[in-house]
Simulated scan of single mutants.
Amino acid sequence: MVADRFGPRRVAVVSDAVRCAVVLAAAVAVMLASPSVWLLVTVALIFGVVDAVFMPAVGALPPRITAPDQLARVQGMRGLSIRLSNAVGPLLAGTVLVIGGAAGAFTAAGVLFALSLVTLLTVRITPSAEVPQRASAWRELGDGLRYVRRHRMLAPLVTVIGLSEMCFSGPVATGLVLLAEERGWGASGMGWIASAFSVGAAASALLLTVSTRIPRAGLVMCGALLATAAGAVALGHAASLPIAVMFGSLIGLTSGFTTTLTGALIQTETDPRYLGRVVSVTTLCTLGLAPVLFPAVGITVALWGADMFFIGCGAICLLAAALGLSVPVIRHAELHPSSSASPAGG
């Protein structure tokens, strides 16, 4: 809602500046006094609030800076950068902590946020053709939710995203830990599976980045969901670590395809006036449900074993694929400008 009200670039710049200032302030605080839990809690709370504004704003930027037929490539680049950051970040953090301690780590993070801010300031977007009509915040929020509900593609697509990301937005990491413990593979075994998952996801991002066109994107997305469902069940029943690693890479590859294509379809089909609010809804579906699902993972594994958790993940992905295949507008979706970007779905 904030991104739609004030513009995605402006919101992204301001929120990134706040993140930079908070981290640098934390670095100064650690230099002047010993770090405390309350400092970390305060930083985490502020970050949570600012990220809730920053992420939808950044998600609303791609249609303003590239052509619709390039959105899948942009999403692939974004996924690839995230995977590379996840790989390099811990190594960099460990090195900085050894050399400069907590103050050095906060300072380094602040410098990285400053570089991010400078990069955002260089981004130029296509201005919206329509002048937004300001209404109250609650009315704009209600308008966004009604837009999603009435749109013939977005309503089922957001549901598909929620189902497909339900297990893979966080709970699967807990499931991998418990699976490795149950099978006696230990922490190193869990690390191998998680690494394979990341490699598979990076491979999907790279493939989509170099692909000039994704024909029948909706059908490809549904096929990837079916493969993810099969891979999740197979991972839960893997008899040895090498087999688990193989299926972990498969899940990373196919779930990466799904995430990238659903994101590109959201950006292609959504009216730019509502894109920030729609991205907020999908972010809530992918990240907001994770804290609620973590206890469910532990209870499921404790009662029925880790394999049952992965069977459940497979069933949910299968349900998402079935929903996508049952909705013609999703099944036949293409990554090109669509007339369905009206609230009523055209």
Rank of each mutant, 00 (worst) to 15 (best):
I193A: 09
A196N: 09
A187I: 13
V279R: 10
V279Y: 01
S211R: 14
L226W: 11
G175Y: 05
G256E: 14
A239I: 01
G189A: 14
A264E: 10
T258Y: 09
V199H: 01
T212C: 11
G186D: 06
I193W: 02
H237P: 12
F247Q: 02
E269M: 13
A196Q: 12
G184D: 10
G191K: 06
F257N: 04
S188N: 01
A196E: 06
I266P: 09
F247E: 04
A217F: 12
R216E: 12
V210S: 08
A194Q: 10
S249D: 05
F247M: 08
T228H: 03
T262V: 06
R183F: 09
M190N: 08
G223H: 02
A239Y: 01
I243P: 01
A244M: 01
G218K: 10
G231Y: 03
V220K: 13
T254M: 15
A232C: 14
A264F: 07
S204T: 07
A203Y: 00
L241M: 07
T260E: 00
I214L: 14
G263F: 02
G248M: 06
G276L: 07
V278I: 10
R183D: 12
V245T: 04
I266G: 12
T174R: 02
G236M: 03
T209Y: 13
L178D: 11
L219Y: 09
G248H: 06
D271I: 07
A238R: 07
T258N: 11
L253T: 06
G200R: 03
A239E: 13
A217I: 12
L226E: 09
I266L: 15
M246G: 14
W192G: 08
F247T: 05
A238K: 03
L219N: 10
H237R: 15
S204P: 04
R213T: 09
S204C: 04
I251G: 05
S240C: 11
R216M: 11
R273D: 15
G184C: 08
A229G: 08
A202E: 10
A229Y: 01
A232G: 08
G218F: 04
G175F: 03
